[in-house]
Nucleic acid binder design. Structure first.
Lengths: 222, 222
DNA sequence: ATCATATTGGAACGTCGTTCCAAGTGTGTC
DNA sequence: GACACACTTGGAACGACGTTCCAATATGAT
């Protein structure tokens, strides 16, 4: 059986995944097409299907490649809390750099990339010294919060790209709309609109993680 | 201008949205098609486009209709914490009943349905008595956590439907796979697998909300 | 050299969102 | 009561997509 390379640049799952990531990064979520992929790999759609189940499989594999890279330095020497913060920030940055990872993650329930994240988070949560039941609650809350931010970030970037504007311009425009809302109907949204304009996504994200970590700590102290 | 009804069942945005919701509920996320919608409304695709911008607009409008219904009893007489819990649970239940709302919400950044949620949550957070800065942090954390759970729930249900199995069977199968993972590579995931099988989505969700509320409270107490 | 198997490239299929336009329907004017 | 006019409708047509299919080619074993 031909397991060895047959010629210098034969088609392979890895080459297909690498090309998919390049396509997703450069053209956005809708840029990954079997036609575009065929062209870039100088082959036909049928050849790709020999190595890949379907588009969902391909997307999940591409997502997993990025997540695996991000989660690789899982166990640092710091405290569990700091490691969780580092893990979360690593994911945030990875999704910021590859927005399509955010939306793909949402649709990859229970699959490889999600497993990696659950395990890395879980190991640190476990080191926090909670009861078995609380371990699951804490890990699940962190996971879902991270996924929520990931999804929103992905949606923002995707929307901005689709309308051919800058991401920060889009958020600025949103802040303007919010600040012009009816103060009677939308008092809160209106009041945070100005903060919206100059806020730091990354810092806000970390503040949310700290809020959950604080909840965990106060629960342990009971 | 013909603002009045011209005949008993003329086409209208509301009738289109209602039909879309029915289609999404009965046939799932992929069931909403301009062709299926045309058939159900006994008209053509072009007629629908007269009342609706595009599919995204239609999806957002359908989502907003459900969210508006859910958020309507926004201000109860209970404590802010309890109201937040009730709000979150209401959303959870709505998304459980209409899984497509979960995925649509993810893609509706800064649009009507999201605005409703931000405002309702924000008003209660404000009543918690935090600094202006902490208000945004708290509301944003709650929002993203809810969206994260929503997205995952939607993905689970969608996956189960696509593979024509029951949702709980799917989760059970996932628990089985997890329990058979390599204990060296996936110690945490393996250890929570059994808990997974008999867990209560709703209770877990609420526990996560409580964790965030706990973090908020401990931060206020500083 | 020959054969079986693994792999390739591209044509073809059905479905989707969307656009376009000829026809139908109602309203206001004379 | 007839005409002009804008609003609304239904369905044909378009281009792009994911996927399937298959004839052609390449590879490794004998």
């Amino acid at each position: 059986m031909g397991k060895r390379v047959r010629r210098e640049e034969s088609l392979s799952r890895d080459r297909i995944i690498a090309a998919s990531i390049a396509l997703l990064d450069s053209r956005g979520e809708d840029g990954l097409t079997f036609r575009a992929l065929s062209e870039r790999l100088a082959t036909g759609a049928g050849a790709i299907y020999w190595h890949v189940e379907n588009k969902g499989d391909l997307l999940t594999a591409a997502c997993d490649a990025v997540v695996a890279r991000t989660m690789a330095p899982c166990a640092a020497g710091a405290s569990p809390e700091d490691t969780i913060r580092a893990l979360a920030l690593g994911l945030f940055d990875a999704i910021d750099a590859h927005p399509w990872v955010g939306s793909t993650l949402t649709r990859a329930a229970g699959q490889a990339p999600m497993l990696r994240i659950v395990e890395c988070l879980g190991q640190q949560v476990r080191a926090l010294g909670l009861s078995d039941e609380d371990q699951w609650t804490a890990a699940s809350a962190l996971l879902h919060y991270i996924l929520g931010v990931a999804g929103q970030n992905a949606a923002n970037t995707q929307f901005a790209r689709a309308h051919d504007i800058d991401r920060s311009d889009f958020l600025g425009a949103m802040a303007t709309v919010w600040s012009q809302l009816d103060p009677n109907e939308y008092p809160f949204t209106r009041s945070v609109a100005s903060r919206m304009r100059e806020h730091d996504d990354r810092a806000d994200f970390l503040a949310g993680v700290d809020l959950i970590l604080g909840g965990i700590a106060s629960r342990r102290g009971r």
